[in-house]
């Protein structure tokens, strides 16, 4: 993952997580990663794999394309 990739992918993870009433630690446990990973994805520092993106979308009950989007 390059910095360019991290810069070009946006997400609405924080909002979706707040809607679901989950903490970062609870979401991390639900998808099988560390809290730090959820934190870095939320802050657009780390670009998740397609598998993790799909798991996050399933747990947050949100379409993956709504959760993640390409920045212009």
């Amino acid at each position: 993952m390059t910095h360019a990739a991290a810069d070009s992918l946006g997400n609405r993870l924080k909002e979706a997580r707040a809607r679901a009433g989950l903490t970062q630690a609870e979401l991390a446990a639900a998808v099988g990663v560390t809290r730090k990973t959820v934190n870095t994805v939320e802050n657009c520092v780390f670009v998740p794999s397609a598998l993790l993106a799909l798991k996050l979308a399933r747990v947050l009950d949100t379409p993956v394309e709504e959760l993640f989007f390409l920045r212009e």
């Binding site: 993952m1 990663v33 560390t34 990973t37 870095t40 994805v41 780390f46 998740p48 794999s49």
Partner: peptide
């Protein structure tokens, strides 16, 4: 093991 060696840790 799988959680603390998640994809961000591997990266």
């Amino acid at each position: 093991g799988a959680i603390i060696n998640d994809e961000a840790a591997r990266h």
